[in-house]
Design a binder for these strands. Structure first.
Lengths: 230, 230
DNA sequence: TCTCCTAGTGAACATTCGGAGAACAAGCAA
DNA sequence: TTGCTTGTTCTCCGAATGTTCACTAGGAGA
């Protein structure tokens, strides 16, 4: 899936993220790959993004996120080491060499219903929900039960479980959990325009809402969805 | 399923990916198979792709990904099931505190895409998908990747994973996997009227289809849904 | 608000590498 | 025979890489 250079760069980025938590700048990547110009890095980054290995915020410095690891044994072998690096060694949760089902499932907290007029922190969780790891990317996730039909045209129905990645940044067009004026958490499309933040429902019966940047806090972005039919 | 050469090539690719994480180029595969030309490799690659064993980005160098192993128990044991999930994500959240194994999880077989014009039995699957037991009821279940937008108004989008309970009976108004004339499996609302069976899409752009009772075989009914956002 | 600096963007050029595919032939099984 | 897999040669063109240079967006500070 990756060429040599792409692979090399991806590993460098991942290493830096593991060590310092900060993505390297183009300049640093240039040095690491022994190039004389940032342009080469730029193209490699673009290729990695195109192939779905990283994600980035355009025009933002050091705004890289690794989405997947290259599919190779050396990584699999080093994963325990990485775990020890990136996180506290006190988490022994990684010792499941062949515990097949367990490796594929992540237990995430269920924080209650969204669009209930209550900040979701208030509902910090009682229960948890097991979720296939494949539905999630990296990072911390939680689940919310969707209330209402304001996102129905995006295929998100009342009663669905939204799997949300905890983050305070999101890109235009992504579906986010937004806390409005510290009071109300809703699930909406995020769009920014003219210094304002617009929250777009996916239901022609509802109006987009426009707020000042200080009125809206992104609490996470939609990473997956679970639904039950009875 | 695979010819000797295809099998040999697939194993070579997998080996290289395991060792280096970088897919081999046509030139390298040519050498490995002891051929004198890349064209042979080209045809083998095409065959492997057509049969769903590998995935590739067209016109991209070294952009191969192995989706399935040949039906070979020794190999299969070493590959997590989700590797076969068309998209990325074979490397889930490498390590974070919230990632804990769970018990109430059921591993169900993933039978391929539905609405692909192929009876799903034909795709009897290598891969499996871990699913929270809470999403399913009793009985035997399997998963299908949804193809197309014919159920979009029911909140079922292209690329979603439908969790299906295997059953040959369903009630009016339920969403079922229906095999039409032994050929085509589709996901539709089931309705019976005047001795006929009607399969209703949930998309105004599509027409309901009406069949004789002998033409339609219910293979299961929708029990749950998984979706990933990228 | 304005100005400056840095990091990121991307066009352009050259070189080498890698993939697509037509065309022809041989071996083999139904 | 017919159909399929395989082997081979050859050609064409696009991808990947390295490099230079100029430009732009954002953030920091005056």
């Amino acid at each position: 899936m990756l060429t040599r250079k792409q692979h090399e760069l991806l590993r460098f980025i991942q290493t830096r993220l593991d060590e310092s938590g900060i993505s390297p700048s183009f300049e640093e990547m240039k040095e690491a790959l022994d190039l004389k110009s940032k342009s080469g890095v730029h193209r490699l980054i673009s290729a990695l993004e195109e192939r779905g290995f990283i994600r980035r915020l355009p025009n933002r410095a050091r705004a890289l996120e690794v989405l997947r690891q290259p599919d190779d044994a050396s990584l699999r072998a080093t994963r325990p080491a990485m775990a020890a690096n990136s996180n506290d060694q006190s988490a022994p949760a990684t010792s499941h060499p062949a515990a097949q089902p367990a490796n594929d499932v992540i237990e995430i907290p269920l924080h209650g219903r969204i669009a209930a007029g209550v900040p979701i922190e208030a509902l910090e969780g009682q229960s948890t929900l097991p979720v296939p790891a494949a539905l999630l990317g990296t990072g911390e996730h939680y689940a919310l039960e969707v209330s209402g039909d304001s996102m129905i045209e995006a295929g998100i129905l009342d009663g669905d479980f939204a799997l949300v990645k905890r983050t305070s940044s999101a890109r235009d067009g992504e579906i986010v959990v937004a806390l409005v004026r510290g009071e109300e958490a809703t699930l909406k499309y995020l769009r920014r325009e003219a210094g304002m933040v617009r929250l777009d429902p996916a239901n022609a019966a509802y109006e987009p809402q426009i707020y000042g940047p200080d009125e809206v806090e992104v609490q996470g972005k939609l990473a997956g969805l679970l639904r039950r039919y009875h």
